[in-house]
Design a protein around this nucleic acid. Structure first.
Length: 568
RNA sequence: GCGCCCGUAGCUCAGCUGGAUAGAGCAACGGAUUUCUAAUCCGUAGGUCGGGUGUUCGAGUCACCCCGGGCGCGCCA
């Protein structure tokens, strides 16, 4: 099926052609209900092009515009906008189409891509902390949306499982490890020895040296050190997995940094041979002399001691993703501080001849209530697992107050759905670049733009069907008389217009905002329009509206990685 | 020094490729329920969009310069 926006855009295009104009401007959802449902600024653009009065141009366009099957006669307004107001009958027909459509009107992309999304990327030997929620939630949502739109998506967890910190971890493992503590809490013990070693090595040069030795041994394949490293990685992965389970996130592949180890030498060699890289001060470096922005910011791909760094492994990763995973699109959901790094990597990839579409999708920080980077009282990063568990506990407490009669197992389940949903939604409902302030009260509030508010709209839908004891019957014709019904139906029709927009600039918050408005429209409808108590044919029509709203809410939240409860 | 990001209502934030009188939520105030779960709805109030100059029919949005905050800039990842 086709959206109103798409249908009207086509009608506008043919009107423009018939009037002898270029196809310029755009047709968008109206910015204000006063202006109807859709608007176009085409006449304004054309007026400028031809130095004519935009309103006169608009009139000319209207002479060739035939949209009587969809809307009232379009009107010229303001400086030269053309406004479209949908006919209730057209809305009713479209809603019926939507009702019958599994995909709720969302079209598959006409140019599907083969995408790899790099998101999450926690570091081994460190617990995941709040900082990881953004990349993880955002990357997962983008993956879900891209998949739904028909793209071929590989979700890749580029784990930080290799690097200089392992010198310290291994030294600590050999000298400080408490086996019993490792049994009780593996990652906690690894973190403890890492921190302890780090502290010692800053004050004791002998320890620092020893750590470096351990690192060299590891990198040259020393059996004992490799075993220790393997165990650390395995224990960390177990810990991550627990968090992913809580978050309902999965990866298709988890190719960490170490995966690329045996490709690094070849990468550097290749870049030297092709002249992209050169030797400078004993290191291998790529310069970007022709790019003003990067002219004074070279990229080191092999250190003067012969070691590789993460730029090297990122280049190897690009090569692998394009040549072996056969991707034409690569998305990196990585924090804003790495913008420069990715500019360099993408430029190197371009020079290597890779044609793929590379995107760095940056994001801001999670702040505490003091507006500084979120930390615990003792100044440490807040472990993600602890944070998620607290979210569930807080949700549980609210459920206990509001709905104490639910069965215990149900309460646990619902608390998890609400708690995790609240954390994700708080993140995704915000523009990704803005630093946002983490607040339990706000994200778990039942009013306002929160997950529980949206989930509650779904619960209300389910409650009606439980009470009715029937599912929504197939219906041919929606009966839309009340303003609340029409508003709700129009909103439902917009879902298909909104979802593809998210990938425009990687903004799931657009979808979140839409769902909030939908929930709000539904709640208003629910207040003003009795469903089960009304007579036919209104009853069936309203029941179908409820069903459709429930489906859009469920699907929309699912695209954000958020679940819905049946009761709450 | 060079570069990137952010600055919108008391608070938390929307406002994608420039579009109409800048929008929500929270908090404040005022209403609505013998309910299909009020975990809700409706209304009122609240703004020199950090400041300035420019580009044009039109700037929160684009350009330049300041101010404020955050973060990066050869051998960490």
């Amino acid at each position: 099926m086709e959206t109103f926006q798409s249908l009207l855009t086509k009608k506008l295009a043919s009107a423009l052609a018939a009037a002898g104009f270029d196809n310029v401007g755009e047709l968008t959802q109206a910015t204000d209900p006063r202006f109807g449902d859709y608007q176009t600024n085409a006449a304004l653009m054309l007026g400028k092009q031809h130095s004519e009065n935009p309103r006169a141009v608009a009139e000319k366009i209207l002479q060739h515009l035939n949209a009587a099957d969809l809307c009232e006669s379009p009107t010229v307004a303001g400086a030269g906008f053309i406004n479209f107001t949908l006919l209730p009958g057209a809305v009713a027909n479209k809603t019926a189409e939507l009702f019958a459509d599994e995909r709720l009107g969302v079209a598959r992309s006409t140019s599907p891509r083969k995408i790899v999304i790099d998101f999450g990327s926690p570091n081994v030997a460190k617990p995941m902390h709040v900082g990881h929620i953004r990349s993880t939630a955002l990357g997962d949502a983008l993956a879900r949306i891209a998949t739904f739109l028909g793209h071929d998506v590989i979700r890749d967890n580029h784990i930080g499982d290799w690097g200089t910190q392992f010198g310290m971890v291994i030294w600590g493992w050999k000298n400080l490890l408490d086996r019993e503590a490792l049994q009780r809490g593996p990652l906690a013990e690894i973190v403890r020895i890492y921190k302890e070693t780090n502290a010692r090595s800053t004050s004791d040069p002998a320890v620092r040296d020893a750590c470096r030795q351990e690192l060299v041994k590891l990198q040259s394949g020393d059996k004992e050190n490799i075993d220790i490293w393997n165990e650390c990685v395995a224990l960390s992965l177990q810990d991550f997995q627990h968090v992913y389970q809580l978050l309902d996130i999965h990866y298709d592949i988890q190719c960490g940094e170490s995966f690329y180890n045996d490709r690094l030498a070849g990468v550097v060699e290749g870049l030297l041979k092709s002249g992209i890289a050169e030797i400078s001060e004993r290191a291998v470096v790529v310069f970007f002399r022709d790019i003003p922005e990067l002219a004074d910011k070279p990229c080191i791909i092999r250190k003067s001691d012969g070691g590789f760094n993460y730029a090297t492994s990122d280049i190897a990763t690009v090569d692998y993703r394009i040549t072996e995973l056969m991707r034409d699109t690569v998305w990196y959901v990585v924090g804003a501080p790495q913008t420069l790094h990715f500019k360099q990597i993408f430029e190197i990839a371009r020079r290597e001849g890779h044609q793929a579409d590379f995107r760095h999708i940056p994001f801001g920080n999670v702040l505490g209530e003091d507006r500084k980077l979120m930390k615990t009282r003792s100044g440490e990063n807040v472990p993600l697992r602890q944070l998620l568990e607290e979210a569930c506990a807080r949700a549980r407490k609210i459920i206990e107050e509001k709905n104490p009669n639910l069965a215990d197992a149900e309460k646990i389940d619902i608390a998890r759905t609400i708690g995790i949903g609240a954390v994700k939604y708080a993140d995704l409902s915000q523009y990704r670049m803005t630093d946002y302030v983490f607040s339990w009260e706000k994200m778990l509030a039942l009013q306002g733009n929160t997950a529980p508010y949206l989930q509650n709209a779904y619960v209300r839908v389910r409650s009606i069907f439980r009470k009715a004891g029937e599912a929504a019957a197939k219906i041919e014709k929606f009966v839309l008389h009340e303003a609340a019904e029409i508003t709700l139906a129009k909103r439902l029709c917009q879902f298909a217009e909104i979802v593809p927009q998210v990938l425009n600039d990687f903004r799931p918050n657009i979808l979140a905002n839409y769902l909030f408005e939908l929930a709000n429209n539904f709640h208003a409808f629910y207040e003003g329009c009795p469903v089960l108590r009304s007579d036919e044919p209104v009853r069936s029509s309203r029941l179908a509206l409820c069903d459709l709203t429930g489906r859009v809410l469920q699907r929309g939240l699912d695209l954000l990685g958020i679940k819905v409860p049946e009761k709450m």
